[in-house]
Design a protein around this nucleic acid. Structure first.
Length: 225
DNA sequence: TGCCAGGCCGGGT
DNA sequence: ACCCGGCATGGC
């Protein structure tokens, strides 16, 4: 249900974070392909480790669709070792590249010319691409207006009494999308802010902090659904 | 040193 | 429909 109070509060948090962090212009990556690769490699993984893996891929000339398509999985695994789960991720990367290369000729423009709701369903059919990875690809590589829910989003908004532990991805995503403008640049910036905030103030070692820019919002224990 | 990080799948209830 | 074990490295 849309609720003006929720909309106002969410937007207000977004503005506070904009003042705190400035414009973030996410996602870190020089090309759409690099962003899509990063989205897969960062599954349950520290970005620092992913960054090393991506640098290595660049050195090997592997941030290019045709090269990746022809790369064998085993060797790819060695190259991306630093990001962890490397066997699994090499397979997932290949699954995505096979899809991208065979169905769209490796063309980013063709990929994102598809209606994004259809494209989302296609991405979710690929083994190794779940909702967060699909949405990151759509939002950050394709500029589509879909909100990305990640561990930081869950943790931050759980602490603010918006959701229970067990709220589904769908449920959380829906909440943001009905209470914020349907605008990819808002979703882009807001999610980026939440990741930064999570790293700085809201990881597991930092359960609660008065220095968090969102702390003024903490005492409002209203019902949010 | 042990715990943590921007998920997802497959098999079992 | 959930629940859980497995997947793995580098940083602090």
């Amino acid at each position: 249900m849309v609720n003006q109070k929720n909309s106002n509060e969410l937007y207000s948090m977004h503005q506070v974070l904009l003042e705190f962090y400035g414009s973030l212009h996410w996602w870190p990556g020089e090309s759409s392909l690099e962003i899509m690769v990063g989205a897969i490699l960062t599954q349950n993984t520290n970005w620092q480790n992913v960054s090393k893996a991506i640098e290595k891929m660049k050195e090997e000339g592997l941030l290019e669709v045709t090269a990746l398509f022809h790369m064998d999985e085993k060797s790819l695994g060695k190259i991306i070792k630093s990001c962890g789960y490397y066997n699994l991720k090499a397979r997932r990367l290949k699954n995505f590249i096979n899809f991208f290369y065979r169905n769209y000729g490796g063309s980013v423009e063709r990929l994102f010319s598809v209606d994004w709701k259809i494209l989302r369903e296609e991405l979710l059919k690929i083994n190794g691409i779940g909702p967060e990875t699909a949405d990151s690809i759509l939002l950050y590589a394709g500029n589509k207006p879909i909100f990305v829910v990640d561990a930081y989003t869950r943790r931050i908004f759980h602490r603010h009494n918006y959701f229970s532990f067990k709220a589904s991805y769908q449920e959380i995503q829906h909440f943001f999308m009905v209470h914020l403008p349907q605008d990819h640049s808002v979703y882009n910036e807001f999610h980026a802010q939440l990741v930064m905030l999570g790293k700085d103030f809201c990881n597991k070692n930092n359960p609660l902090c008065s220095q968090c820019p969102l702390s003024p919002f903490l005492n409002k224990k209203t019902s949010h659904s």
